[in-house]
Design a protein around this nucleic acid. Structure first.
Lengths: 232, 232
DNA sequence: CCAAGTTTTTATACGCGTATAGAAAGTAGC
DNA sequence: GCTACTTTCTATACGCGTATAAAAACTTGG
């Protein structure tokens, strides 16, 4: 029965989401404002709010579409590597979305179509021998690390684009070498060192540690067996 | 020479920062707006901007004061435990600051008075046998994990306070048990499991993994340090 | 056909961070 | 004392997300 009561809608959630995609595509992330979007859809700003709860929900819907379209990686059989592969795929998916930072302020993942990532990571952790509860904990720890890394990455990018006077250069210039010898030792190389991509390295360390911890005796499963040197 | 040229200032950076502290203390984090703060200081909003670059810088100044006042923990001698102890102290310091989330959107730490944390962590990593470069990388990995965990924690708190209709309950209600068996298995316990504090657990795993990687089998992971061509 | 009820859309308004322009209040050189 | 110069502060304005209230456009029951 297509006939419902009340004033018939001019726009739908889908209209809004697809207009948002168009807008981002055409004019970049910064142009995605509720007011601009309303103009795009051909309505008033507040009309949008009858279809999405707030802007954050809209972004989550966008992410969901995005996640649905992401290709899923081949997964190795060895559990530790499998966890790592899924996490790296998740990281790559998220790192490619410029407005992701606003979504990352939300809790732990995730939008419906992105559930494949936690599912796969948790499953791999269970295969590695962790009880389900600990596998969930492991996933969340990986998620926190991933979200934090992406946030920092986005901030660094932003800072680089703005060309702001590099507050940290100033900090490292006036370092008290007595109180902070290591930082003084690093000195001017900080900028260079922190520009490196360490996500993969950290992730492997994390996975190794999680599996060792969870299995009491560090099964040799963690020891990198072969194809470990992929980077993103 | 106390005589300087130009119109004499009515307010100082210190005035602003201390007024901000007062305001937060008295009326909570949400009341800290540039306009409200200006009223508190007895000036116009835009006058503040001659003393701080933007609101984010102001928050960083607040954090700096806060960090200066934080007690520093006793540090164990064993390097791994030492790293963990410093990181946990850092986590505790940050987790206690309600507006921290806005600062965490910035790069890697940190304000001047908080440099003790990276210094200590890096130093402990070096004591554990990591070369300085890898110790810095280890610190940053720990930082990303810490920042991510705190962000998620803050988001969870916010969500709990708002009493929003728990989007995730809805997600977990309509789970496709075929495609997502592990998540289906967790089911309604997700809420409970994700409420647990896993920071310490994750951190220990991370430290363990970082030290294993950097030492025992780790030499093999240094093998690419010459041709280190990764982008960010 | 009309009143009641329901859903969607519009109008208006608030407070936010901050960009921009210019006024105000000093010092320094003549 | 006047002009130039510098620094600080004020006035105004923009676009943002979104709360609130009312209007509009339907269906339904009488």
């Amino acid at each position: 029965m297509p006939a419902r009561t009340g004033r018939p809608p001019k726009i739908s959630r889908a209209d809004i989401v697809s207009a948002a995609h168009r807008l981002i595509e055409a004019e970049g992330t910064e142009s995605l404002t509720m007011r601009r979007l309303a103009r795009e859809v051909g309505t008033t700003p507040m009309a949008l709010y009858h279809h999405v709860h707030d802007k954050e929900e809209l972004l989550l819907l966008l992410l969901d579409d995005y996640a649905a379209a992401m290709p899923r990686p081949e997964l190795p059989d060895e559990p530790g590597e499998r966890m790592a592969a899924a996490a790296i795929a998740m990281h790559e998916a998220l790192a490619g979305v410029p407005w992701i930072v606003d979504v990352l302020r939300a809790d732990d993942l995730l939008s419906v179509n992105a559930l494949w990532y936690p599912e796969t990571i948790i499953d791999a952790a269970v295969r590695a021998g962790l009880p389900l509860e600990r596998a969930v904990a492991a996933y969340r720890i990986i998620w926190h690390y991933t979200a934090g890394e992406i946030t920092a990455r986005a901030a660094a990018l932003r800072r680089r684009e703005e060309g702001r006077p590099t507050y940290r250069r100033q900090v490292f210039g006036a370092l008290d070498a007595e109180a902070l010898p290591r930082l003084a030792e690093v000195g001017g190389r900080w900028e260079e060192l922190t520009a490196r991509d360490t996500y993969g390295e950290g992730l492997r360390a994390l996975v190794a540690g999680l599996l060792i911890n969870g299995l009491a005796t560090g099964r040799s499963s963690v020891k990198r067996s072969g194809s470990d040197d992929q980077m993103d």
